Simulated scan of single mutants.
Amino acid sequence: MKNEVIDWYIKTRPTYKRLSAKIEALLSEVFEMENISYHIITSRTKTIESVRGKISKDKYDNPKEQIQDFAGIRIITYVEDEVAKISELIEKTFDIDHENSGNKSDDLGLDKVGYKSVHYIAHLDKSRLKLPEYKQYENKCFEIQVRTILQHTWAEIEHDRSYKYTGKLPTDIGRRFKLLAGMLEMADREFNNISNDIDAISENTAISAEKGDYNIPISSTTLTTFLSTKFSSVLGGEPIIFSDRDGILVGEMERFGLKTLDDFNKIIPDDFNKTLKFLNEKARLSDFGLVRRVLMINDYNKYFSIAKDDGFTVWTSYDDGESKFFKHYGVDWDDIEDKYGVMLTD
Rank of each mutant, 00 (worst) to 15 (best):
I73D: 04
Y165M: 02
D346S: 12
S219T: 15
D111P: 02
T45K: 02
L290C: 11
I297P: 07
W8G: 06
H328N: 11
R52N: 10
K168H: 09
Y318N: 14
T148W: 01
R176W: 10
Y137S: 06
G247D: 04
N196L: 15
F70Q: 01
E4H: 05
D7C: 01
K2C: 04
S243A: 14
R176H: 13
L285F: 15
I86N: 07
N298W: 08
V51T: 05
K282Q: 11
A25Y: 06
E322C: 13
A209K: 06
I90T: 10
D287V: 08
R292D: 10
Y137E: 01
L235M: 13
A122G: 01
K168N: 09
R292F: 02
D334I: 12
K168Y: 02
T93D: 04
P132C: 09
L27H: 08
E82P: 10
S101Q: 08
S43C: 12
E185C: 04
R18N: 13
K64N: 04
V79D: 08
S56A: 15
T12Y: 04
T12E: 15
L184T: 02
I36F: 08
Q66A: 05
I55L: 08
N215M: 00
P239R: 06
I90F: 01
Y78H: 14
K178F: 11
D338E: 15
I144C: 01
I248V: 15
G289Y: 10
Y60C: 00
S305T: 13
V314W: 03
E99V: 06
F226Q: 09
F326H: 04
Y9A: 03
F231R: 01
M343W: 07
E185G: 05
E65Y: 06
A71I: 05
H152E: 14
L131I: 03
L19S: 02
Y134L: 08
S232Y: 12
N193D: 12
K140Q: 08
E322S: 15
D172C: 10
L285V: 00
T12K: 01
R245S: 14
S220T: 15
R189I: 11
R255W: 03
V250D: 07
G311T: 13
F226L: 09
Y329G: 04
T313G: 07
S286P: 02
M33P: 00
R292M: 13
